[in-house]
Design a protein around this nucleic acid. Structure first.
Lengths: 206, 206
DNA sequence: TAGATTGTTAATCGATTAACAATC
DNA sequence: TAGATTGTTAATCGATTAACAATC
């Protein structure tokens, strides 16, 4: 009997719960409730309880949830009770910002390598990393056993680089290029397209 | 009799349709079908037809959709048949990348002003913009009638800056700080949190 | 005409909410 | 104990899909 698969829409909310709990912990808070969490996030208390109940019984009636305990549980569920190495491909403005981004600390990720195909950039440093030649991407990623990549190259090159990443064994790609990627089963992609977000906002403006 | 409100989940797909149609147009394609569009995006053809039918009858039986016509229609729906000025707040790595981002061109937006609160940065240039003092944010945004902002400041400052933006009359905020914002009715926020996206991916990894 | 594809309806599927017994 | 809040069930609500007549 296999457990029923947890809907992706629930997985998408767990990082928000975790982020908010970590903020509370940073303020030395010890317990919270589904109601408080919901108010902070604009989500109903019932939904938060239902989401968490997919994975276990983490709360106490009358009291709520122990914050450090719930942080530990959600971290385990999301597999961020460890640190994943990330390869950044593309060292333009976006790649540069992403490679130096401080916000991955304590959230389960760290940048481990940066690649570009521009001879003028290869060998230069971005943050603590020497920019490596994309020509060496496959062996370097294999050697370092990197399974996560962030893609910050022009849309025209995104599919080609994706194919290399897949060959190298990468399983997860966060794609900043505004284009849909084709990947084989077993590889997952998340998309960040600021212009698409802005267009969702302009729909509601006059 | 008011038209029923179009679900936000549909609004969220329109930018993807538009982006894909613009790519096709760039390759001098003239017509497409719900099936082709769906295959490119990993969305069912039925859903694309249903989504578009919320707004009008844009296709022709037996033929499909005229690409330039559909681009024009969706652009109108999303209010990107014009160009919106954006204020960027924060000129660290993320603000810098966002202020210089080339991907807004032809998608309805352009950066018009950059603000920071660091005396060492105020007066410096990022791209074509002189970084202005956040102390002048309200009058400057009002003067320029800017209604859209991108927030690239530390989480600890995000709510404070948001309050200023709201006072200045901003209606739409794209927030890069990993924190939920409180805004009054009539103001909308979209969130970009790369670590949250990565955690959705790590859930599926061993 | 024959083939293709739309727009729409009805059926299905999935997600959210309300409500409350259990219990800390 | 009294009050608070969980985990869960059933009801509601909303989104997706399948199917097909209409028609280009």
């Amino acid at each position: 009997m296999t457990n029923k698969e947890v809907p992706n829409i629930i997985i998408g909310r767990l990082p928000l719960y975790l982020r908010t709990l970590q903020q509370m912990a940073g303020q030395n808070r010890r317990v919270t409730s589904s109601q408080e969490l919901g108010e902070r996030l604009g989500i109903s208390a019932a939904q938060i309880r239902k989401d968490l109940s997919q994975f276990g019984e983490y709360g106490k009636q009358g009291t709520g949830y122990d914050i450090p305990f719930l942080i530990a549980q959600i971290s385990k569920i999301l597999h961020v009770d460890r640190v994943w190495d990330i390869a950044v491909v593309g060292s333009g403005d976006v790649g540069h910002a992403v490679a130096r981004y401080q916000g991955f600390t304590n959230r389960g990720f760290r940048v481990a390598a940066v690649f570009d195909n521009d001879p003028a950039k290869i060998g230069q440093k971005v943050g603590n990393f020497v920019i490596q030649d994309v020509a060496n991407l496959i062996p370097e990623i294999r050697k370092a056993k990197i399974q996560v990549a962030m893609l910050a190259v022009p849309a025209s090159q995104a599919q080609g680089v994706t194919d290399l990443l897949v060959q190298a064994g990468v399983k997860s790609i966060l794609n900043y290029a505004p284009i849909s990627l084709n990947v084989p089963a077993g590889v997952r992609v998340q998309y960040i397209d600021p212009a698409a977000h802005l267009q969702m906002l302009s729909y509601y403006m006059d």
